[in-house]
């Protein structure tokens, strides 16, 4: 059933694209979700100095590599947006897929890392540090998966020259997911 786009969607009293506004509000609501989780973690971490003994066993090398992978993918999504604005469909498509590749690579490293840790007995129920570790990184990982799937859909639109503005919208989201990781990495890996 075809749905006619309402006039409401095309209006822009603020001068900002409606979709962009919505993505910003989405990011706003995500900030408080991660904010609540991380604030809980930080408060408890400050009260329990002995969590450092657990944090020692996290794999900083993989964490750092993943940080690099995500930051690079953020660059690619910017390039995809850049070419989408220029109207170069193929380049926008290519860079969108490089971003997806970055997300996929991140997930691969993550699975390797987690498999290794679980095999060594550092499971989600080993201690509260590991509970927070898996929950925070897990929710973040779900955001990566969601982003990758949405980007795959958008990339084909870009190729057809449809909804080119969505490159920017998913870019905003992807940067946000990236920034969350920038918080998670020092809090979970570096702070010993």
């Amino acid at each position: 059933m075809g749905i006619v786009q309402p006039i409401a969607t095309r209006r822009s009293a603020t001068g900002i694209l409606t979709g962009k506004l919505a993505v910003w509000w989405l990011i706003g609501s995500e900030i408080v979700i991660f904010g609540g989780l991380l604030a809980s973690y930080i408060m408890m971490r400050l009260l329990h100095g002995d969590w450092a003994n657990e944090a020692e066993h996290t794999n900083v090398v993989i964490g750092a590599t993943n940080t690099f992978v995500l930051l690079t993918s953020s660059l690619f999504v910017v390039l995809s947006h850049y070419w989408a604005e220029k109207g170069d469909r193929d380049k926008a498509f290519k860079y969108m897929w490089l971003t997806i590749l970055g997300g996929a690579l991140f997930l691969c490293f993550k699975s390797y890392e987690w498999t290794h840790e679980i095999a060594q007995g550092y499971t989600i129920s080993k201690s509260l540090f590991w509970s927070f570790y898996y929950v925070a990184a897990g929710i973040h990982g779900l955001h990566i998966i969601g982003g990758v799937v949405i980007m795959a859909f958008i990339s084909f639109d870009l190729k057809k020259g449809k909804n080119m503005h969505r490159a920017e919208l998913i870019g905003l989201y992807w940067h946000f997911v990236d920034i969350v990781w920038i918080f998670l990495f020092p809090l979970l890996y570096i702070a010993k």
């Binding site: 509000w25 706003g28 609501s29 995500e30 900030i31 408080v32 979700i33 991660f34 904010g35 609540g36 989780l37 604030a39 809980s40 989600i124 129920s125 509260l128 509970s131 929950v135 929710i139």
Partner: peptide, 22 residues
Amino acid sequence: MASVGPLIAGAIMLLLDQTMSI
């Protein structure tokens, strides 16, 4: 929107407490 986030995080934590005895 600004207030429910921490509780969503809390709900996930409570759900794990219930189901996986964390």
